[in-house]
Design a protein around this nucleic acid. Structure first.
Length: 488
RNA sequence: CGGGGCGUAGCGCAGUUUGGUUAGCGCGCUUGACUGGGGGUCAAGAGGCCGGAGGUUCGAAUCCUCUCGCCCCGACCA
C-alpha cells in the first residue's frame, strides 16, 4: 500500500479498463509480447508457449483416440486453389498475404500463405482417395496460419497464429456430420474439463458460418466482461470442396461420388480465453491441469547460513516429493526476498504456493496459499503432498463452477425488443437467450443497432432447450431461442 | 479503411508551446553491505545517434516537410 507510487502494481484493475487489464495480465504473466517489428504479430514467450504445449498434447491425445492421424501440408498454397470454391474465396480474399517473388524472380502464379488448408488438403485427398475403402480419411495438422487482420489483439486475433486443423473425408453425409459433432464434443469436453472454461455448443447462423461450409458448429465461452469468445469450430463442408477439388471415390455399388468432408480447429486463441476466464486483478490464474508450473516452493531465508541450508534441503525435498507424485513443482531458491517472489508467481498464475522457513521446519509446517483464494494457512509438512493433490483438484473444479456461475448469472431470456436493445445500449456484457425468425435480415438489423450477433443456435441438452415463440425483433414465428451477445 | 493518441534508457514518463551547449525522473538492472514470514534500507554504478530521412538555423528532442511504426475507438474476422 505504501508503495503505490513506485509503479509496482502494474496490472490495471478490470473495473478500470478491461482491455488494458487483459494486455497487462499477458505481459506480467509472461505469455507473449507484441512483435512490433512485424505488423499484427506476436512473440509467444516460454511461459505462454508451455501452456500452448499442454493444450496441444492433451488435444492431440484426444484426437488420436478417435482415430485421427497427424500430417503436414505446405505453408504456401497456389493462389488458384483458393479461388476454386466460390464462398471460400469471397470469405478469405480480404485477409490473404500473397507471395509474388521467390528466388529473386517474379512467380508465374503467386502463392498464398495459408489462411487455412481446406484447398491444398482437398488437392491431396483427391490423389489419396479412390475407393470407399480409403474412407474415412482422418487427418489433422498442427500448423501456423496467416490472416491479415485490420485490428489485432494478443492471442484473440493476430496476423499469424498457431492452431490445429482437422480434415476428414467420408463416404456419406451422415458419417461426416457425426464426425463434426464428435469433434465439437471433443472440444467442449477439453475446454470444460481441462481449461475449466464452460462452453455452449451450437450451430452458427448462415452469416457466421465458415466460408465454404454447409454448416458450422461452435463452442462459445463467456469471458469475464460478458462478451462471447468463439473458442473452437467444427464444420460440415458437405461436398463443396470435394467438388472443387474433384475428390471422388467409388462406392461398394461401383458408383462414383464426391466425398463428404469436415474440418475443425482450435487455435492459440484459447490462451486468450484462458486469461479472460479465470484471471484476476493480481494477474494470471491458470487451472491446475493446464498450468506448466502447478506448485512453487518459496524459501524464507535469514542471516543464519546454517538455518538457510536446512531450509534449502527441506525445499528441495519437498519439490522432489511433489514431482514424484506428478505435481509440476518448482523450488525457487534464488537470492532475494520472498515478497517479490510471491508477486512473481502470482502473476504467472501458479496454482499453489508453499512457503518454508526456519519457523516451519521447527514446527513441521509450511505456509500455504492457493492462487484463487485470498487467505494463507499453515499446513503440516507431512500430509503436504496429498494436500497439494487435493487442492489442485479442488481448484480445477471450483474455477469451472465459478465460471459457470458467472455465465449463468449473466445470461438472460428476453422477449421484447425494448429490453433487448436497452440491454445492449447499456453495454452490458450478457448472453441474451431470445427468439429469432431465422433470417439474415433480422440478424443484420440487430448487429447494426446493438452490436450483438448470434453466437450460436444451442444444441439440445445444455439447458437451452428449443421452444417455439416469436422473434424478439420482428414478431414473426421462431422455432427456438438463440444466444445473442457481443463477441471478441 | 475512417476517427483519436503516441514514438526520448529494458519499462513507464517529463522536457517540445517560448530552439541554447553535460537530456532528466521513477521503476527495473549491475556490484557491495545491512536485511529477510507480501514489492525492505543504504551506497556506488551501467545504460540514449530523443522512431527514420530531408530541411530551416551559428545551434534542433524542440520548428517545417516527408516517411515508418505502434496503441486505442469504430466498419470486416479463428
Amino acid at each position: 500500500m505504501a508503495k503505490q507510487d513506485k509503479d509496482l502494481s502494474r496490472i490495471t484493475p478490470r473495473a478500470e479498463s478491461y482491455p488494458d487489464w487483459y494486455q497487462d495480465v499477458i505481459r506480467e504473466g509472461q505469455l507473449a509480447e507484441v512483435a512490433g517489428i512485424v505488423k499484427g504479430c506476436m512473440v509467444i514467450k516460454p511461459h505462454g508457449y508451455a501452456i500452448w504445449e499442454k493444450i496441444q498434447r492433451e488435444l492431440d491425445d484426444r484426437f488420436k483416440a478417435t482415430g485421427v492421424q497427424n500430417a503436414y501440408f505446405p505453408l504456401l498454397i497456389p493462389e488458384s486453389f483458393i479461388k476454386r470454391e466460390a464462398e471460400h474465396v469471397e470469405g478469405f480474399s480480404p485477409e490473404l498475404a500473397v507471395v509474388t517473388i521467390a528466388g529473386g524472380e517474379q512467380l508465374e502464379e503467386p502463392y498464398v500463405i495459408r489462411p487455412t488448408s481446406e484447398t491444398i488438403i482437398g488437392h491431396f485427398f483427391a490423389q489419396w482417395i479412390q475407393s470407399h475403402r480409403d474412407l474415412p480419411m482422418l487427418i489433422n495438422q498442427w500448423a501456423n496460419v496467416m490472416r491479415w487482420e485490420k485490428r489485432t489483439r494478443m492471442f484473440l486475433r493476430t496476423g499469424e497464429f498457431l492452431w490445429q486443423e482437422g480434415h476428414t473425408a467420408h463416404s456419406t453425409h451422415e458419417e461426416a456430420v457425426e464426425r463434426v459433432i464428435q469433434m465439437l464434443n471433443v472440444y467442449a469436453d477439453f475446454a470444460q474439463d481441462f481449461m475449466a472454461m464452460p462452453v455452449i455448443r451450437g450451430r452458427k447462423s448462415e452469416t457466421e458460418k465458415f466460408a465454404g461450409a454447409l454448416a458450422s458448429y461452435t463452442i462459445e465461452a463467456m469471458m469475464q466482461d460478458g462478451k462471447a469468445l468463439q473458442s473452437g469450430t467444427s464444420h460440415d463442408l458437405g461436398q463443396n470442396f470435394g467438388k472443387a477439388f474433384d475428390v471422388k471415390f467409388q462406392s461398394k455399388e461401383g458408383q462414383l461420388d464426391y466425398v463428404w468432408q469436415t474440418s475443425w480447429g482450435v487455435s492459440t486463441r484459447l490462451v486468450g480465453g484462458l486469461v479472460m476466464s479465470h484471471s484476476d486483478d493480481n494477474g494470471l490464474v491458470i487451472p491446475p491441469k493446464l498450468a506448466p508450473i502447478q506448485a512453487v516452493i518459496v524459501p524464507f531465508f535469514r542471516k543464519n547460513e546454517a538455518e538457510n541450508e536446512q531450509v534449502r534441503e527441506e525445499g528441495k525435498k519437498l519439490q522432489a516429493t511433489l514431482q514424484a507424485e506428478g505435481v509440476a513443482a518448482v523450488f525457487d531458491d534464488k537470492e532475494g526476498q520472498p515478497g517479490p517472489k510471491f508477486y512473481h508467481y502470482e502473476r504467472l498464475g501458479v496454482p499453489l504456493r508453499f512457503g518454508v522457513g526456519p519457523r516451519d521446519i521447527a514446527n513441521r509446517t509450511a505456509e500455504f496459499k492457493r492462487r484463487d483464494q485470498a487467505e494463507k494457512r499453515s499446513v503440516s509438512l507431512d500430509g503436504l503432498v496429498q494436500l497439494a493433490k487435493d487442492e489442485l483438484a479442488a481448484m480445477q473444479r471450483e474455477l469451472f463452477s465459478a465460471a459457470l456461475a458467472r455465465r449463468e448469472a449473466n445470461t438472460v431470456r428476453l422477449d421484447t425488443w425494448d429490453d433487448f436493445k436497452g440491454l445492449f445500449d447499456a453495454d452490458e456484457g450478457k448472453f441474451v437467450f431470445a427468439h429469432w425468425d431465422g433470417t439474415k435480415e433480422t440478424e443484420a438489423k440487430v448487429k447494426a443497432e446493438t452490436g450483438a450477433t448470434i453466437r450460436c443456435i444451442p444444441m439440445e441438452g445444455q439447458g437451452f432447450e428449443a421452444e417455439p415463440g416469436e422473434c424478439v425483433v420482428t414478431g414473426k414465428p421462431s422455432a427456438q431461442r438463440v444466444i445473442w451477445a457481443k463477441a471478441y
